[in-house]
Design a protein around this nucleic acid. Sequence first.
DNA 1: GCCGCTTGTTGGCGAAGTGTCAAGAGGCGC
DNA 2: GCGCCTCTTGACACTTCGCCAACAAGCGGC
Lengths: 208, 208
Amino acid sequence: MTAGSAPKWRRLEPDERREQIFVCAAELFGERPYAAVSTADIAARAGVARGLINHYFGTKRELYLAVVRRTLTLPPSAVTTLPDGSLTERTDAAVDWFLDMVSKQQKTWLAAITPEGIGRDEEVEHILDEADREAAGLVLEAMGFDRGDERWEQLIAIVRTYAGMVKAASREWLDRETLNRRQVHTVLSHVLRTLVADVIPRARTQSE
Amino acid sequence: MTAGSAPKWRRLEPDERREQIFVCAAELFGERPYAAVSTADIAARAGVARGLINHYFGTKRELYLAVVRRTLTLPPSAVTTLPDGSLTERTDAAVDWFLDMVSKQQKTWLAAITPEGIGRDEEVEHILDEADREAAGLVLEAMGFDRGDERWEQLIAIVRTYAGMVKAASREWLDRETLNRRQVHTVLSHVLRTLVADVIPRARTQSE
DNA sequence: GCCGCTTGTTGGCGAAGTGTCAAGAGGCGC
DNA sequence: GCGCCTCTTGACACTTCGCCAACAAGCGGC
């Protein structure tokens, strides 16, 4: 027995502690819906007093929003290298890149895109909006469009529409397993090609 | 002053009271996220004691699920009459019919398809699943497919993928107002046509 | 018209969850 | 070894939820 007085708890740098709590919260919010996760649960998993959560994040809801924000904001590993080449080559590459990314973070991704039953949450929606807009911009650039385009907002809207399909397709593939990767690839790249080649040119003429 | 002893409250038929509470709950759950609606709020709006909610629905959550179930289960006004004719005519008609329906129940529809930030809710997902499957079946039949098809499940999956796009497009149109009805129509019918004509035949050959 | 019974409805209690805050203790610096 | 800064705890006040025994609305019998 080393007579030492083992400290009851260890003192951490604020950033460190904050991150630790954040990670535990992210796990739990990924497993159960918001209302089914208590701050006591989070504190317990982090091995920390419940009050500390409020100290670092203010409110359970604020903590939740922080988790949502980080989870949905896609890592900037994004743009990287999409090849030049024919339209088909580029759409194929884009879809492939995306499916790779999704299959890596499978669990997180699925938890993040799962639709809720009913009841709108303004703040969450806003975060999702921004994330989608960002992703849509990257896709458009990869397809050879220019951010300066006069109808940029409209292009974004169309791609965001497509994003809805991408999310649904991901669920069919990873969650329900009703489609395999190749089938999902076929559907998504076909549709993306149709959008770029046929729909976008046509939509431009229908602004009013 | 009629000396009468005005009763403090009126006694209703169970079905009647149940419905009244249900309607108030549906309104509130449509306005705010689940956790931001208290049973006291619902009881207040219904002009009823809070305990009565538990008497009729057991739990706040059960009441919520009941609301979700009814809201997401589309009215059977669905099938009705989709014309024969060329593929283009049929896809156009299907998309038109759908956009009409959506624009009528705008508010409810938007509240129902709004995505949540993170955190999966098994039961809600299951309800959504069933609703989507039902809708997908109708679309497929309208497109001339047969429920007896050997790959019916796979077809359902593809159309459910498309449903994700439909929902996203509805938000762009009704909520963000970044696309007008004609543009949404163009996008959706184009894609639906592509799916039926090109993708589905191809996907069948990629089952493994 | 009064009374009694059925049952829809209320109101309060106990448990659980959340935010606040003053007091306590880890551990670096002198 | 001592003191101090501040990270961390634990308890308190308040809100919300599910439960249940008691209450009373109002129909039917006499």
